[in-house]
Design a protein around this nucleic acid. Structure first.
Length: 453
RNA sequence: GUGACCGUAGCUCAGCUGGUAGAGUAUUCGGUUGUGGUCCGAAUUGUCGCGGGUUCGAGUCCCGUCGGUCACCCCA
């Protein structure tokens, strides 16, 4: 739970604007959905771990009204009786619900983006918040590999514009993960396998294998896995190697072909393939993925991924939309912000804040000052009036704290001369400007506009 | 959901082995009448996160809870 100061909002807006511009450039349209969803919409979409992290909202009024003592012996049963609403956990599931409910309102494929907060009942830690902002883009209604191509191309474009170096987009395919379990004759342990493999990056291959051993995977099977996972090579080499290993597993070959095509098209789409890394261990925990999955990381940042996504071809069908294809990914605004801060990549604020503060001596002069402020704004200069006739030193001090580069003084002395004073707060210089030649202000302000920050 | 540490004035923090709170900074006022950012002087500031317990007495000990930081788990 965080507040954002004006400076922080500026910094976040800088990122949001780049993201939004690119979303629009690729033809995505915005939607918004409510923060609160029905709890039943959200459950069982993110896996067991995910379900635990959903913020449940207790029913209003007498929330115990339908419960009896026995319900307290079964927490899940109790939960259903006292909570029917929840805060959204991501933007993908609400999108699926939205699509199912608004099928008639959009042509398909439907390309939408959605930038809103989501909530997770997590323990906060580095790069992780209970309330955070996701910038989500999805394409609903086609299973064309071009969707993958477009999303990844756009992601690299955005990261380039944000000047983030060292990012990698790791790509995998759920079908490949599944193939691992078949490859070692442990089909029923597919989930365990994918969750464990996902940790290779974090705890290393040896620890992963040790963990599998604890879960009753035999030495023989582990060695078989090790041989595959140890393999290092270029994207092409990895694909070839896996093709060889999985030659008898049809769906694995499909997955490999998807990735192969994706790489080919990315090249034509102008993406520098150094950013792309095929990684058979990337799993992603969310339960709804069915095809390609990807994760965007920044090397040496120790902040986890800054974005991730994948294909989820069945999800909207849960909400009644048949043959629904879907793919998308989300950028984590807060994590990108954190990285840009660390790397000093956020440009300094130029000048969209106040340029001139008009000081006030006497309420009698208000009409004149209001008129003056309007005339100055006509020159496209951000101007404000100090709202109360307090001591001028206080008004100057206020301008100082606000970093306002100029003040105008127009009191009775000046009025008799038909001039006002324009004072440069940086060097203290003062200039008299005739009231009927307001545009002369520009002689002094335009130069310092940029250097004032 | 698990573990560790933390939560004292607006901010950063001090407060030893229990005896009802202090510094720096910020704020406000002043250093004479209409000129800030420096300097000097003065003043204000807190239900010590919240709830309960132990004790004659708790910021200080115990329990719970909420919030923060970090590591798991998982994820943006």
């Amino acid at each position: 739970m965080r507040d954002f100061t004006p400076q922080q909002v500026y910094e976040r807006d800088y990122i949001l604007n780049i993201i939004k511009e690119n979303f629009q450039k690729y033809g995505f349209e915005p939607i918004e959905t409510p923060a609160i969803e029905k709890l039943s919409i959200l459950t069982e979409k993110y896996g067991d771990e995910g379900d635990k992290l959903i913020y449940k909202i207790i029913n209003s009024g007498d929330f115990l009204k339908n419960t009896d003592i026995e319900d307290f012996n079964d927490k899940n049963k109790l939960l259903k009786k006292i909570s029917e609403k929840a805060l959204r956990y991501d933007l993908t599931v609400p999108l699926a619900r939205y699509i199912a409910m608004n099928q008639d309102k959009h042509p398909f494929p439907f390309k939408r983006y959605q930038i809103q907060n989501v909530w997770r009942a997590d323990r906060p830690q580095k790069g992780r918040f209970r309330e955070f902002c996701q910038c989500d883009v999805d394409i609903i209604g086609t299973n064309s590999i071009l969707s993958e191509v477009e999303l990844i191309t756009m992601a690299t474009e955005i990261l380039n514009q944000l000047k983030i170096k060292n990012f990698k987009i790791k790509i995998n395919h759920r079908k490949l993960l599944k193939a691992f379990s078949e490859y070692i004759n442990q089909k029923d342990k597919a989930t365990l396998l994918s969750i464990t493999l996902d940790k290779v990056d974090k705890i290393g291959l040896d620890n992963v294998l040790a963990e599998l051993k604890k879960n009753n995977i035999s030495d023989n099977q582990i060695n078989k896995l090790k041989e595959v996972l140890q393999y290092k090579g270029t994207n092409e080499e990895i694909l070839l190697f896996l093709k060889n290993k999985f030659q008898n597993i049809n769906y694995a070959l499909e997955g490999l072909e998807d990735i192969q095509k994706l790489l080919t098209y990315l090249k034509f789409s102008g993406v520098n393939l150094n950013y792309i890394k095929v990684d058979p261990t990337i799993a992603r925990g969310l339960a709804y993925y069915t095809g390609t999955v990807f994760e965007i990381i920044v090397e040496n940042s120790n902040i986890g991924s800054i974005g991730g996504g994948g294909r989820y071809d069945e999800m909207a069908s849960v909400f009644g939309l048949k043959n629904s294809y879907g793919i998308g990914f989300a950028f984590g605004l807060d994590r990108i912000w954190s990285i840009l801060k660390n790397e000093n990549l956020i440009p300094r604020k130029q000048t969209n804040s106040t340029q001139i503060l008009i000081t006030l001596f006497d309420e009698e002069n208000m009409p004149l000052l209001l008129k003056l402020s309007k005339e100055i704004r006509k020159l496209d200069i951000n101007t404000e009036l100090y709202p109360a006739p307090i001591q001028i030193k206080k008004q100057l001090s206020y301008a100082n704290k606000r970093n306002i580069p100029f003040i105008v003084i127009l009191g009775k002395d000046e009025i008799t001369k038909n001039k006002f004073i324009l004072k440069n707060m940086k060097n203290g210089e003062q200039h008299f400007i005739p009231i009927d030649r307001i545009e002369n202000i520009l002689n002094f302000t335009s130069k310092s506009k940029i250097s004032s920050y």
